[in-house]
Amino acid sequence: MSADIKVDSTLDAKGLSCPLPILKTKKAVEALGKDQVLKVVTTDPGSKNDMASWAKRTGNEILKVEEGGGTFTFFIKKTA
């Protein structure tokens, strides 16, 4: 569970394929203030690795990834 993570904004990227989950995540994170948290839900299996690469490259932090029921849920803290 992720009751310990305070989510400031949520992005539903279910049903979208590469590169849209990443492009939409970038936009959503940009709209946040520093240290705020975005929750992103995807169904693209490629997004698991893609999101990690994106976060590493942009200097944002993935606090947690939840997987199950065909979805991936990312909690991303805007640290950049």
């Binding site: 590469c18 590169p19 990443i22 492009l23 995540t25 970038k26 690469s53 994106w54 490259r57 942009t58």
Partner: peptide
Amino acid sequence: LILATTAAAMD
């Protein structure tokens, strides 16, 4: 276009 837009999203 996929590579370009993704790259832009990765700064």
